[in-house]
Design a protein around this nucleic acid. Structure first.
Lengths: 365, 365
DNA sequence: GGACGCTGGTGAAGCGCTTCGACGAACCGT
DNA sequence: ACGGTTCGTCGAAGCGCTTCACCAGCGTCC
């Protein structure tokens, strides 16, 4: 009598595989993990049994014994003013990359708060953590330092000490937009940015883009106005009107708010300003939005997929105990489409990234 | 000598708690799970030790011993033509609800294919599965039936036998839109639907909405044109032009494509048709979009949060072995805003859901 | 030719938890 | 006073896997 009689789970276990293949349990384990040399012959016998029985290792048992869950956590924001499609692209890129490294992804939202992170890390549910939508002075950052698990941030906090961060170089993105416009001869540009709440929260990308715009404008002798911008069509309209009231000579717009690009175009149309004949528009938004607009928008996309991939691969490196660079900034890439043209009366040759009119060359890269 | 000397993990274990509280390991377990009566005194001692030591149960060990991972899988699509913000709302609602039931959420994308589902279920990484964006004849459905784990679908496949599904009643949503417009005296309406690819894929919600529109139109003596619609501004424009070419007397539009609502309004403006004076517009889209448009759109929102909550709670019921209804359809709710008005020359009293002009009353609900 | 190092394989000790059965103590009714 | 309950607690047996330590066989090198 075998005593206790719990019901067996139904799924074959490693012991079943071992029995079927006529080898020891440990041998099966080594075949599957590749951590020890196993003869061709044995390996094939084992693999055949695995396939035949439809064996899948039990995740809990594996995690318990190996002290690795092969799961990473992805902490997403669910706040307002968030660039939803971009977040989604990140998420799918992260899942796909993680799978390539034989890891799964546990989804966390920030609303459980920092203790959610703690719970998951302390309980060994995950091996490492990916945090999105990082604010300049993020409350989660100190927690990450004491978490005892590797983490990678998508975004840039004010103090990156001891962290690993990946992001688009938004500062550079702001510069690139202005340089493109300056190269086309525009002398008065405006940045329509993220909603005011995003700036107030101290979200890095908004501030950095604005700084890049302002800096490049100064360097190229371009006058720049910057305004936050809500996602509401009526308010966008009001902002655009406000811009032209403050600077009637405005000939170019940088829009960093994907939800606003449509309304901005509508507002310009309503004001009788044609794109790109009267006003040039550069957007910082996913390519999809830029392509679907009419006219198609010159844009700097956020390479969500690339960032997601990089973040995962950095995290994997940390899980293996390898050193990682503290900050990885991806170079922005401006795609010229149909919404930018030479400023009226200033037939400039197009040369992206290089200032045309105002003499002083861009700082070396 | 204690022999093997693996490094201890650093995290306190249940044994540490038991020792600290002066009780047996099993007692700690029972305090934490509540599966056995424990005296007030002992419970408090144990809980104090738990807090003091910062104990968090090891997820792997727990899963192994209890045969429950306390994790559910969420399978998201990453296809084109997908309503990104809605998906995102689902996801966050699912995570939040799952946490309320003491479960975490593992994120899966469909691109790993059905075997991804199988791997995760067979490996006992998750206890149950939530599948989004179900197609009418979805390849994953047969798999779900043989998965050996409870699952809930968000969306409706053609054959719901043996499944548990939740969704908005899109058929009814289509009806509600038409009924609202018919009640305002509109006699010629059009549905601008999802992209053609979505219909071709056999995605349930698109077909069901269209059927609801057509059916209600017939019932109320309203002429209805239905067209798929891409998300590209230029193509939206073309579609709108096409609609008015086919039916110059068109006085109302139902738009079921959140990415198209902006462009539709722009196109109408460009054609010199005012909303709602010349054309009424009803959208099936998140409230956020409807609110941000100008004029604010009368709309039927997809109650993503509610659906997510329901889906989780149904899944939890299945995990407990309780029976669940095979199909749960949520009643759509139309919010009247500023984009719909009485048809010109037909001053009808507004009465949502009840046909005004054409006599025959709506079928009883 | 014996010490040595490989290679390929085994056995068993946990990993940290849940849960079953047992058991003393207190409490009942008779 | 004595069986029968109930209550609160304990001990120990796993859950299914990884990994350490060991071993048998075999070629190798002084």
């Amino acid at each position: 009598m075998s005593g206790r009689g719990r019901v067996p789970s139904g799924q074959p276990t490693i012991a079943d595989v071992a029995r079927h293949a006529g080898v020891a349990v440990s041998t099966v384990s080594y075949v599957l993990s590749g951590k020890r040399a196993i003869s061709e012959l044995t390996r094939n016998r084992v693999l055949a049994s695995v396939r035949l029985l439809g064996y899948h290792p039990n995740a809990g048992a594996r995690a318990l014994a190996s002290r690795r869950a092969n799961v990473i956590a992805l902490v997403l924001p669910l706040r307002s003013g968030i660039q939803v499609p971009v977040v989604m692209q990140f998420a799918t890129a992260v899942v796909t990359s993680a799978r390539r490294h034989d890891h799964d992804v546990l989804l966390l939202t920030s609303d459980e708060g920092p203790q959610g992170l703690h719970r998951i890390a302390a309980g060994a549910l995950v091996d490492g953590v990916l945090v999105m939508d990082v604010e300049l002075r993020d409350v989660r950052v100190p927690l990450l330092r004491t978490l005892g698990r590797p983490s990678v941030l998508i975004g840039l906090p004010a103090d990156t000490d001891g962290l690993t961060c990946v992001d688009l170089d938004f500062h550079r993105a702001g510069q690139v937009c202005v340089e493109h416009l300056a190269g086309l001869g525009h002398r008065r540009v405006a940045l329509l940015g993220a909603p005011a709440a995003v700036y107030e929260r101290g979200t890095g990308f908004a501030h950095r883009t604005r700084a890049g715009v302002v800096e490049a404008a100064a360097r190229h002798g371009v006058e720049a106005i910057t305004l936050p911008c809500e996602e509401n069509a009526a308010q966008v309209h009001a902002r655009v009107v406000e811009l032209f009231a403050r600077q009637p000579e405005l000939s170019a717009l940088v829009v960093q708010n994907e939800a606003a690009v449509g309304p901005v175009q509508a507002a310009l149309a309503a004001l009788g300003r044609r794109v790109p004949d009267d006003v040039s528009v550069v957007a910082v938004c996913p390519d999809q939005f830029a392509e679907h607009a009419s006219p198609r928008l010159t844009s700097v996309p956020v390479p969500a997929e690339e960032i997601g991939r990089q973040a995962v691969s950095l995290l994997m490196r940390k899980l293996r105990g390898e050193p990682t660079p503290p900050v990885t900034l991806l170079e922005p890439r401006l795609t010229v489409r149909d919404s930018t043209a030479a400023a009226t009366g200033t037939p400039a040759t197009y040369d992206p990234g290089r200032p045309a009119g105002a003499g002083r060359p861009a700082a070396g890269r």
